[in-house]
Design a protein around this nucleic acid. Sequence first.
RNA 1: CGGGGUAUAGCGCAGUCCGGUAGCGCAGUAGUUUUGGGAACUACAGGUCGCAGGUUCGAAUCCUGCUGCCCCGACCA
Length: 443
Amino acid sequence: MRLSRYFLPILRETPKEAEIVSHRLMLRAGMLRQETAGIYAWLPLGLRVLNKINAIVREEQNRAGAIELLMPTIQPADLWRESGRYDDYGKEMLRIKDRHEREMLFGPTNEEMVTEIFRGYVRSYKDLPLNLYHIQWKFRDEVRPRFGVMRSREFLMKDAYSFDIDAEGARHSYAKMFVAYLRTFERMGLKAIPMRADTGPIGGSLSHEFIILANTGESEVFCHKDFLDYEAPPADINFDDRAAVQDVVDRWTARYAATSEMHDAPVFEALPEAERVSARGIEVGHIFSFGTKYSEPMRAVVNGADGKEVPVQMGSYGIGPSRLAAALIEANHDEAGIIWPRAVAPFHVGLANLKVGDPATDAACEDLYARLTKAGVEVLYDDRDDRPGAKFATLDLIGLPHQLIVGPKGLASGEIELKDRRTGARESLTPDAAFNRLVAESA
RNA sequence: CGGGGUAUAGCGCAGUCCGGUAGCGCAGUAGUUUUGGGAACUACAGGUCGCAGGUUCGAAUCCUGCUGCCCCGACCA
């Protein structure tokens, strides 16, 4: 992408409404625009990040056997009356009426709807297990939205719903999502720790929140330090192998880890002090197993092998990609701006032409831009007639992992500069060497 | 929902106490000189001073009501 033809509205000063670093940087880097309290437009750079996050989430959901569909944002109130949640959900649910005065709502979650879809088609235990998910906008009318997209009213959520014939199957479905979540967050370069959690209005008995540690996190968390060294399971784990999948869950739940709501201070303090970690965290995922809470009242039943009709065992599994975008920045930034982990970076490389109009630099940049793009490396080419300092500042701010700096000085001796955004390390090398390096890394 | 703050050009702000017809920096446009860490100069353009009502010869400024947004707290993916 040529910056001269892109839409990247960088702000030099921070809008005063932004308090926390991710919100400030997202506004300054031209990723977001607030339209009203808790509701944001995603500008092109922000959307690229969101799409990268979604792609990883999707790959790992698919790998774990979940199947993608897409449910609507607007739902009929009657569906929620069946589960009893229409009244329970309270003011957080945005209620609307259509032209026929029918009561509708903007979905804050989709248990009712997915259960309605399920019961319309599935009759036999032979069709189970089943896990359906979608990535769709949700609306929860928060009393006090804040921190940009970290706590917005409209937000993107990946929500998966599992259906099983019995409790043992449901446990396996839960374990599969547990493993998929560990992998998903690790691929984004985040250390997410599963913590026993309260089930809230979703209900159920078994629940874990996935928390990443960050100073600006909203919740206070406590865990064993061993978690910091745990590694996520490999991509080739066999999700159908119940024992293998359960082993991962057992390992990751053996040590103490809890949010403040579930914190058991005496147990935690019984640990040697050197093994305790108390920190702040950001919740980036939440999984629930809630049995027949919805299937029973909504009559989502199947025939078992014994010919008897039973309500299905369900679970739901959520990740907030829009919140993740902010959480990633909270975990990856410095004074100059964002530092994207490669997997979610909006572009891989920023190519800075330090002297637009100079035949040698123009030619070198055009050549690199064309070759890298053709090789599948995502390049943002700053071809604007601007001063070098401004270009450096912009590239640092938007945080692409690599900066390729092409100027007349270096070119005079046949070299350009490759800068690593995270370490700040710069290296002079030939354009061909830089090309090979970047292509090798994206392979 | 309780408490606090704030609203003036795209962004950041001054002007409000003490009423006299709106200003600064950045960004924008044109030109000149510049060009390896957010350039300089000159010129230009950009405002129903959040909204409604009131007081006054005259309101960004005083009064009344309303609204938006932000922060702290309680609550939540």
